[in-house]
Simulated assay, not measured.
Amino acid sequence: MRRHTVSTAVALCAASLLGVMGTASAAPRAAEAAHTAQRQQPVDPVLVDCFWRPQLQPGDFMIACGDGNSLLTSLHWSSWGADSALAEGVNVVNDCVPYCAAGRFHSYRVIVRLDDPQPWKKHPQVRHYTRMSLVYTDGRPAGYGRVETYPLWN
């Protein structure tokens, strides 16, 4: 009887070990298939920030990286797609009067449009938006047009 118990235990251990090995050998194939499917899906472009980090639908975005005198805040994205992205928000701009260090910041409602996605030089497999247009909906900074378009860094 003892002999039957030992051989049953050995058989169960061997069967469970084969089951684990079968699952383990299937895991790399499943991971590879998922990776292949992920590569085949189109990935939406990113917005590259001042620190060269890719952003998707950021709530805030610094336009003037050098001096911080223009910032987008309270961004609410209505679309973010393969060709363009659209948001509403606020452009906070320094008036630089009498000079930028002594200037005051003013807020202006804007519609933000990102477009012209291109491969990102830092990561060519990633596309990034290369143009930003701001439409001022209620007032605008002195010297600005109703629509301002900026190239975005690469």
Rank of each mutant, 00 (worst) to 15 (best):
P28G: 05
P28C: 03
R29P: 04
A31F: 06
A31Q: 13
E32N: 09
E32A: 13
E32L: 07
E32R: 08
E32P: 01
A33G: 09
A33E: 15
H35T: 14
H35E: 15
H35I: 07
T36D: 15
T36A: 13
A37W: 10
Q38E: 12
Q38C: 02
R39Y: 10
Q40K: 14
P42N: 05
P42F: 09
P42D: 08
P42G: 05
V43N: 02
V43M: 14
V43S: 10
D44A: 15
D44Q: 08
D44K: 06
D44E: 10
P45Q: 03
V46W: 04
V46A: 12
V46T: 03
V46R: 02
L47A: 03
L47E: 00
L47F: 02
L47S: 01
V48A: 06
V48F: 03
D49R: 12
D49Q: 13
C50L: 00
C50E: 13
C50A: 06
F51W: 10
W52H: 12
W52A: 09
P54D: 10
P54M: 13
Q55F: 04
L56C: 06
L56E: 09
P58V: 04
G59D: 15
F61E: 08
F61T: 08
F61S: 09
F61N: 03
F61L: 11
M62W: 09
I63Q: 02
A64P: 01
A64R: 04
A64M: 00
C65H: 06
C65R: 09
C65Q: 10
C65Y: 03
C65G: 07
C65I: 04
G66D: 15
D67K: 11
G68R: 04
N69L: 07
N69G: 11
N69F: 08
N69V: 02
S70C: 08
S70E: 14
S70P: 03
S70W: 02
L71H: 02
L71Q: 06
L71F: 00
L72K: 00
L72E: 01
S74Q: 12
L75H: 04
L75T: 01
L75E: 10
H76W: 14
H76I: 14
W77K: 04
W77E: 13
W77C: 05
W77G: 08
S78R: 08
S78H: 08
S79P: 09
W80G: 05
G81K: 05
G81R: 06
G81D: 11
S84R: 02
S84W: 00
S84T: 04
A85C: 11
L86H: 12
A87T: 10
A87Q: 11
A87R: 05
A87M: 14
E88N: 01
E88G: 01
E88M: 02
G89M: 07
G89P: 00
G89A: 08
N91T: 00
V92I: 08
V93N: 11
N94W: 07
N94F: 04
N94T: 02
D95H: 13
D95T: 07
D95C: 10
D95G: 13
V97Q: 15
V97P: 01
V97F: 14
V97C: 11
V97L: 15
P98R: 07
P98K: 05
Y99G: 05
Y99F: 14
Y99R: 12
